[in-house]
Design a protein around this nucleic acid. Structure first.
Lengths: 212, 212
DNA sequence: CACGCGATGTTCACAGCGTCAACATTAGAG
DNA sequence: CTCTAATGTTGACGCTGTGAACATCGCGTG
């Protein structure tokens, strides 16, 4: 088994190792710590090695951001999976879980959230598979999936799906931003949880109509 | 008039000049161009001169962000001032103007918006007077003012003002984020305008009830 | 099985960045 | 008028991202 070499010249899967190192750095010290040299240092490799896998530091950061997005998708999926079995097929509950999961990830993991959702100045990546969770869907796709299910069930006009998606994401993402660095920052955690739950339910009611 | 010296050793009001230079740089090349050396260069001064007015580059950036916030407040005030005289005292219209102005500034001036609203990793500044427009109110204050007026008039329970503020800002700020760098980026401008107008009116209706 | 070429990683170098310490200039208080 | 504190400059340091040249190695070809 030659794989156990202390420092094999060829790493094996350096790209993945760099992204992992970058994400770790982001969680530990915040997005601004994700520097090319710091990442390669943590991966135990020379700085320029990164250039075999990324054109520049921005692409490295984008990849790290994708990983954070995937983690967010995982939390959302977990919230959906945690629904009582009887509710797991209800679009309203799926949608609520998307919002709750989104906010929970942001509040539990501010550095991760900022890494995935701020910082990357062009995130056209919201639909790329790298940002997906275990279920293979990105956070934005989980949202539109829930809305599409609601439309299929008739609780939402089909041609309102996309504007409803804008509505939902705007509210929830905006809330997370405000809670992390806006005027709400500093509010006690249970306060933010309560505000967030209320916001999500209001938004869902606004989109699907009042709960039955 | 000794003030007309070509390069007086003492600048006069370097702090303001630096903030102005930084804001110009941000508008021209984006927030990431606001670097200490670039700003001092544009102001025609040595790099370390900035340290007589800012403890570090982050504080310089924060000051530039405040200026952008002030510009945003100005646009909102202009939208309110542009209301037909008969509507200018209606809380509903004032509130709508806040949302429309916010979105208009973001779409018209993406670099300015990003400078003021992203980037600065801790913006506890939302209430500081430096972020105010000509009217002396920050964007967030213009929002809460409009909501307070609505409450005073009875169209909103007084104890809902703060949660309504969260609602409104979340939606509008989230929308601007999505439009500038999220999945909506790339959409045609008139599309974004239409989506934004619709969103603002829906949000206002959600907060104050359907339009009379 | 040997070879060699392309992929991957390293070394060295450079310019730009933020910041500190030491120094220069000047406005304004006494 | 003088001295001091405020303000601006110079020079240096270690950090950053990145390019060019070189080293090592896996793997497909002969």
């Amino acid at each position: 088994m030659p794989e156990a070499r202390a420092h094999p010249y060829h790493h094996g899967d350096l790209r993945a190792a760099l992204v992992r190192a970058g994400y770790g750095l982001a969680l530990d010290e915040g997005p601004q710590a994700v520097t090319l040299r710091a990442v390669t240092r943590r991966a135990g490799v020379s700085p320029t090695a990164a250039y075999r896998h990324f054109a520049n530091v921005d692409q490295l950061r984008a990849a790290v951001g994708m990983r954070a997005l995937g983690a967010l998708a995982g939390v959302i999926e977990a919230h959906q999976a945690a629904l009582p079995a009887a509710h797991r097929a209800r679009p309203r509950d799926l949608l609520t879980a998307v919002g709750d999961g989104y906010i929970a990830y942001a509040l539990d993991n501010p550095n991760g959230f900022r890494t995935g959702l701020f910082g990357l100045l062009d995130m056209g990546h919201a639909e790329l598979p790298e940002g997906a969770g275990d279920g293979g869907r990105t956070p934005f796709q989980l949202l539109t999936d829930a809305l599409a299910a609601a439309a299929a069930q008739g609780s939402l006009p089909p041609d309102s799906v996309s504007s409803a998606a804008v509505h939902c994401w705007s509210s929830v993402h905006g809330f997370a931003s405000l809670a992390l660095l806006g005027p709400l920052r500093g509010q006690a955690r249970h306060e933010l949880d309560a505000l967030g739950r209320r916001l999500v339910r209001d938004v869902v009611a606004g989109v699907l109509g009042p709960a039955s």
